[in-house]
C-alpha cells in the first residue's frame, strides 16, 4: 500500500516536471481565472441592471428609502465633513509651500476650490462612504442571507430586490451628491480658515478669487461623479452581501470585497468621468 502511494506521488512529480504539462497547467490556471473574472463581471452587470430596474418599478418601499437616506446620508455627514475640512486645510498649506517659490500665492484660493469641487470632495467622500456604508450594507445583507432572512422575505411575497436592494441604491445615489455639496462648502471653508488665520490672506480677496475662478461645471461635474460613486458603493455593498457565502467567514469576506471593489471602481470611474467632462 505504502509502495503504491510512493509510486503514485513520484508519477505525479514526474508529470508536473514535464514541460508540456507545465504549459498546459499554466493555460488552465490563466484560462480558469479569466473565465471566473468574466463570470463575475457578467453577474455584476446583471445584478446592476436588475437593481436599476427595481428602482423604477413598483411596488416602492418609501419607509425603507427614508431609513437608508438617514443611514447613508445623515450618519455619513460627520465623516465626510471632517475629511473635507482637513483636506481643504492641508491643501491650502501645501499649495502655499509650493506657490511661494513662484510668487503665485494668489492662486491658492483657485487651487483649493477647483481641487475640492472637481476631484477631492467626490473621490474622498466616495471612498469614506465606501468604507462606512459599503461595509455596513454588505454585512447587513450578508447576515440576512446567512440567517435565511432573505428567503423569509420571498416566502412572505416580498421581492428582496425591491425591499433591500432598491432602497439602498436609491439612497446611495441621491445622498452622495448632497454629501459632496456639503463637503465642497466645508472643504473650501477649511482652505479659507488656514489661508486667513494661518497664512495671513485677506478674507475679501480670498473669497473673490474663489468666486472668480469657480464655474458651474466645476461643481456639477463633482456632483455627477458623486452620484455615480454613490451608485457604485451601494450596488457593490448589496451585491457582495446578497451573494455572501455561508458562515461568519463568508460575511467577513463579503464586507471586505464590498469595500475593496467599490474603492477600486470609484477610482477607475473617476478617471473615466474626468476624461468625459474635461477632455
Amino acid at each position: 500500500m505504502q509502495a503504491q502511494a510512493q509510486q503514485d506521488s513520484s508519477q505525479k512529480a514526474a508529470r508536473s516536471l514535464n514541460p508540456v504539462n507545465a504549459v498546459l497547467n499554466c493555460f488552465r490556471y490563466v484560462g480558469g481565472g479569466l473565465l471566473s473574472f468574466m463570470e463575475a463581471i457578467g453577474n455584476l452587470t446583471f445584478f446592476m441592471a436588475r437593481a436599476l430596474g427595481h428602482c423604477f418599478s413598483p411596488p416602492f418601499f418609501p419607509s425603507q428609502v427614508a431609513r437608508q437616506i438617514i443611514d447613508i446620508g445623515y450618519y455619513s455627514l460627520p465623516v465626510v465633513g471632517m475629511t473635507a475640512l482637513f483636506t481643504g486645510m492641508v491643501l491650502a498649506l501645501q499649495s502655499y509651500t509650493g506657490f511661494t517659490r513662484f510668487n503665485a500665492e494668489s492662486a491658492i484660493a483657485g487651487v483649493v476650490v477647483l481641487s475640492i469641487t472637481r476631484e477631492l470632495a467626490p473621490v474622498l467622500a466616495g471612498l469614506m462612504v465606501a468604507g462606512r456604508v459599503g461595509a455596513s450594507i454588505a454585512a447587513e445583507i450578508g447576515t440576512m442571507r446567512v440567517t435565511e432572512q432573505i428567503d423569509a422575505l420571498r416566502t412572505l411575497s416580498v421581492n428582496p430586490f425591491k425591499y433591500l436592494i432598491a432602497p439602498r441604491v436609491i439612497a446611495g445615489t441621491l445622498m452622495l451628491p448632497i454629501l459632496v455639496l456639503i463637503g465642497d462648502i466645508i472643504g473650501v471653508m477649511g482652505g479659507y480658515i488656514v489661508s486667513i488665520y494661518r497664512l495671513g490672506f485677506s478674507p475679501a480677496s480670498y473669497l473673490s478669487q474663489t468666486w472668480e475662478i469657480l464655474e458651474y461645471m466645476d461643481v456639477m461635474s463633482g456632483l455627477y461623479k458623486a452620484a455615480a460613486f454613490g451608485f457604485i458603493v451601494s450596488v457593490m455593498g448589496c451585491y457582495h452581501g446578497f451573494y455572501s457565502q455561508r458562515g461568519a467567514q463568508g460575511v467577513g469576506a463579503a464586507t471586505t470585497n464590498a469595500v475593496v471593489s467599490a474603492s477600486i471602481l470609484i477610482l477607475i470611474c473617476n478617471y473615466v468621468l474626468t476624461q468625459v467632462f474635461f477632455s
Partner: peptide, 18 residues
C-alpha cells in the same frame, strides 16, 4: 409572488428580521 401568498414557512433558525 402571487403563488407565495399560499405559503407560510417556519424556518429552522426562525429567520426573524432583526
Amino acid at each position: 409572488d402571487e403563488l407565495m401568498k399560499k405559503f407560510g414557512m417556519l424556518f429552522q433558525g426562525g429567520a426573524l428580521f432583526d
